[in-house]
Amino acid sequence: KEMRNAYWEIALLPNLNNQQKRAFIRSLYDDPSQSANLLAEAKKLNDAQA
């Protein structure tokens, strides 16, 4: 469930391009235990690109 939530949050971040989203989501599938960390990194990048 945590992975699914992280997937959708990443997919809906407005300032990431599709390539960036795909990279984060690929990492999510590679290591679901890192969901919270990956989401935090994606949000950080999203904010930096705002």
Rank of each mutant, 00 (worst) to 15 (best):
K1D: 15
K1M: 09
K1I: 14
E2R: 01
E2W: 02
E2N: 08
E2C: 04
M3T: 13
R4V: 14
R4L: 14
N5W: 13
N5V: 09
A6G: 05
A6C: 04
Y7Q: 10
Y7D: 02
W8E: 09
E9S: 13
E9A: 13
E9D: 04
I10P: 00
A11L: 14
A11P: 02
L12W: 10
L12P: 01
L12D: 06
L12K: 15
L12Q: 15
L12N: 15
L12C: 06
L13S: 05
L13V: 00
L13G: 00
L13C: 03
L13N: 01
P14C: 03
P14S: 09
P14I: 08
N15V: 02
N15E: 03
N15A: 14
N15C: 03
L16I: 07
L16P: 00
N17I: 04
N17E: 07
N18F: 07
N18P: 10
N18W: 05
Q19P: 07
Q19H: 10
Q19I: 10
Q19K: 09
Q20F: 02
Q20C: 03
Q20D: 03
Q20K: 02
K21I: 07
A23Y: 11
A23V: 06
F24E: 00
F24W: 02
F24C: 02
F24H: 01
F24L: 06
F24G: 00
I25C: 06
I25Y: 09
I25H: 08
I25Q: 09
I25V: 06
R26M: 12
R26D: 08
S27I: 08
S27K: 11
L28C: 01
L28D: 00
Y29A: 05
Y29C: 04
D30G: 09
D31A: 03
D31S: 07
P32A: 07
P32R: 04
P32I: 07
S33W: 04
S33Q: 12
Q34H: 11
Q34D: 07
Q34E: 07
Q34S: 06
Q34Y: 06
S35W: 07
A36P: 10
A36L: 11
N37E: 12
L38D: 01
L38S: 03
L38H: 04
L38T: 08
L38F: 04
L39V: 14
L39R: 09
L39M: 09
A40S: 11
A40H: 11
A40C: 04
A40N: 10
E41C: 05
A42H: 00
A42L: 02
A42C: 03
A42K: 00
K43E: 04
K43T: 02
K43Y: 12
K43Q: 10
K44F: 12
K44N: 05
K44S: 10
L45R: 03
L45C: 03
L45Q: 10
N46K: 01
N46M: 01
N46V: 01
D47L: 14
D47C: 05
D47N: 12
A48I: 15
A48R: 09
A48T: 13
A48H: 11
Q49L: 12
A50Y: 12
